[in-house]
């Protein structure tokens, strides 16, 4: 069974890209991981559509695309609530549903969160570069010719599907809440002592506003409240997704999926991995506070999250396929 076209892009939306879990192992050569911004929404979208979990999905930013399906498929929309609808009838987020040849998936507009994920049973195809289909627009490779989707693009699945998966729904307690005041838990960073005590204390006490200069590379804050004791610059060093940098302007910036592999600015803290999906869903104007946790606690939370996802995957595998 070979790949088959599953849909045509009728409208591209603001910024829709093909993403998967990203590239690992090449950071020492300067190649960023890229990949989905919200791993939780990505994993659940794949589970809901019966995929293994590593299949590429579409990452939709704020304004959704219009997709015309050209064959029957099972799809799921997770992440931000951009008010998806099928043939102009609203459909729920966080559940999988059947689409037919000629059906049109569209989005009425941003309600909560910033990024939605569309998964299809069989996984979206795209250029596979260094073990990942993730689009890295800055260097122009991966996904759809290294760029965001455009009107007229035709998307295929990697695997063709003989039996469509039974539709399923993510249990309500597992659906995250977006919007409002968001607490991001952080570890203290390597250069925490590069900042004045007062400004570092304020970093943990006062809220920040998400700037509209945020993108897949980083999520910037408006307030320039961090004050360096001496210099804002360090000898260039490795960074991770979640690393918070503060250049001389004193504004914290959380590095996200398309970050560079190295950075030259002081790092007051880093957002823990389980909270990165929350950071991915921040919209400009939203309030963020940073809360310090221990490494041990961060690891406990990560393990808990992994177990929850593993359990969910197992539960979904046990579901009997219904001959839809």
């Amino acid at each position: 069974m070979s790949a088959e076209e599953v849909c045509v892009v009728k409208k591209a939306g603001l910024f829709t890209t093909i993403q998967d879990a990203g590239r690992t192992g090449r950071q020492k050569k300067g190649i960023p991981p890229a990949g989905v911004m919200d791993e939780y929404a990505f994993e659940t979208a794949n589970i809901l559509t019966g995929n293994d979990g590593t299949e590429a999905v579409l990452e939709v930013t704020m304004l959704g695309p219009v997709l015309l399906f050209t064959k029957p498929a099972v799809i799921a929309v997770t992440g931000a609530d951009l008010q998806p609808s099928l043939n102009n009838k609203p459909v729920d987020n966080w559940h999988s549903f059947r689409v037919n040849d000629g059906d049109e998936l569209s989005f009425a507009g941003m309600k909560k969160g910033a990024r939605a994920y569309i998964a299809v049973q069989g996984g979206f195809d795209g250029d596979e570069i260094l073990g990942s289909r993730s689009t890295y627009v800055k260097a122009g490779f991966g996904g759809m010719n290294g760029r965001a989707l455009e009107k007229g693009d035709r998307l295929s699945t990697v695997r063709s599907v003989s039996m469509l998966k039974r539709c399923s729904r993510l249990p309500a307690p597992l659906i995250p809440e977006y919007g409002g005041e968001t607490v991001l838990r952080v570890l203290e960073g390597p250069e925490a002592s590069a900042f004045t005590e007062e400004s570092l204390a304020a970093f943990y006490h006062s809220g920040f506003t998400v700037s509209n200069e945020s993108d897949r590379m980083g999520c910037r804050m408006e307030e320039a409240s961090l004050v360096h004791r001496e210099s804002a610059d360090i000898l260039s060093d490795a960074v991770d997704t979640g690393t918070i940098q503060a250049a001389a302007d004193g504004r914290p910036m959380i590095l996200m999926a398309d970050r560079q592999t190295t950075g030259g600015y002081t790092r007051p803290a880093s957002v823990i991995q389980v909270d990165l999906p929350k950071a991915a869903q921040l919209v400009p104007g939203q309030t963020v506070t940073f809360k310090k946790v221990t490494l041990e606690h961060a690891h406990d939370l990560l393990k808990e999250q992994r177990r929850r996802i593993a359990a969910l995957r197992l539960a979904s595998k046990n579901m009997l396929p219904a001959g839809l």
């Binding site: 570890l187 203290e188 390597p190 060093d237 490795a238 991770d240 880093s270 957002v271 823990i272 991995q273």
Partner: peptide
């Protein structure tokens, strides 16, 4: 050693 993040040690 110090922590670049909860999944990266320097």
């Amino acid at each position: 050693m110090n922590m670049v993040s909860d999944t990266a040690v320097r």
